[in-house]
Design a protein around this nucleic acid. Structure first.
Length: 278
DNA sequence: TCCCAGGCAAGGC
DNA sequence: GCCTTGCATGGG
């Protein structure tokens, strides 16, 4: 449901709505003005504008963004399946029917979600923006997300200065570990050989990375759907719709057991839906 | 003033 | 091992 033209990537698919994709909480570096969304990924950029009966993705990196937006996956099939599970999921999918799970950069996702801990989305975006302006390379599109060597070159006080709060030491220490990772233990390639549960365990060895952040990185950067990030909103969802006597620490495992390989998708529809109700 | 936000690390059992 | 507590910051 997409094709490359001289103007960009033309998407005609009712399972592609930039508002749902970018505002559902999976990504932090995007802009919106005059009906046009802009999205950054590391040093790359794309604009999404309404075009005829669909959207046009304008970018200098079409191949990259075809993967990034997961355009080769049939989301109609996914939404049909999930809608059939229960009335709640039918509603959630209807509300967020244009969601697609982005394939994001590992380093950017990791640092973004370390910042996200016990934080709100507005402030997460501000901190990441200050991080890019201070340490990212300036491109023709704006500031890139910093490289690992840039992230590892600054002291803890830098992270304090961009407003990271008590996450400052976690950002600093994780940058140090990754930049001193001679064996490539935490390289994308090595981590990607692990199954999702082993990957989560491994990521939890980094500072500022616990169960929830590791699940997010595994879902959004490694494209694994057999995971279920549980944050304060999902806890509300659980107690409201799926309550079954589990302690908070067991909710993740329970929901994965319920939704299997669709867990990652289900999580995102529910998260977006729950937040829409304030 | 208190509560909350895409939680986590450290310390006490 | 599990449970509790403290934590920077800004908005409602």
């Amino acid at each position: 449901m997409f094709k490359q033209t001289k103007d960009g990537i033309l998407v005609t698919d009712n399972r592609f709505r930039p508002k749902d994709i970018l505002e559902c909480g999976q990504v932090f570096r995007y802009t919106f003005s005059n009906g046009v969304y802009g999205v950054y990924s590391v040093d790359k950029f794309a604009q999404i504008l309404p075009f005829e009966d669909g959207y046009l993705i304008k970018t200098d990196f079409p191949d990259y963004f075809i993967e990034y937006f997961d355009l080769k996956t049939d989301y109609e099939k996914i939404t049909d399946e999930i809608s059939s599970y229960s009335p709640i999921l039918k509603n959630a999918v209807e509300y967020g029917q244009g969601i697609r799970i982005l394939k994001q950069d590992y380093l950017e996702t990791l640092f973004s979600f370390i910042i996200s801990a016990n934080n709100n989305i507005k402030r997460i975006q501000l901190i990441i923006e200050r991080l890019c302006v201070a340490l990212g390379e300036k491109t023709k599109y704006g500031y890139a997300f910093p490289t690992l060597s840039a992230l590892a070159s600054v002291p803890v006080s830098f992270y304090t200065s961009i407003g990271a709060g008590y996450r400052d030491v976690n950002l600093y220490r994780t940058a140090q570990i990754l930049s001193n990772d001679e064996k490539g233990e935490f390289s994308y390639q090595n981590l990607n050989t692990l199954n999702s549960s082993a990957l989560i365990t491994k990521l939890c060895r980094l500072y500022g990375v616990g169960e929830k952040v590791a699940n997010c990185v595994t879902l959004f950067a490694f494209s694994r759907k057999d995971v279920f990030p549980v944050d304060t909103w999902i806890k509300k969802v659980y107690h409201e719709y799926f309550e079954n006597g589990h302690a908070d620490k067991d909710i993740c495992k329970y929901l994965i057991q319920l939704f299997g390989d669709y867990s990652g998708y289900v999580q995102q529809y529910l998260f977006y839906y729950q937040r829409s109700k304030f």
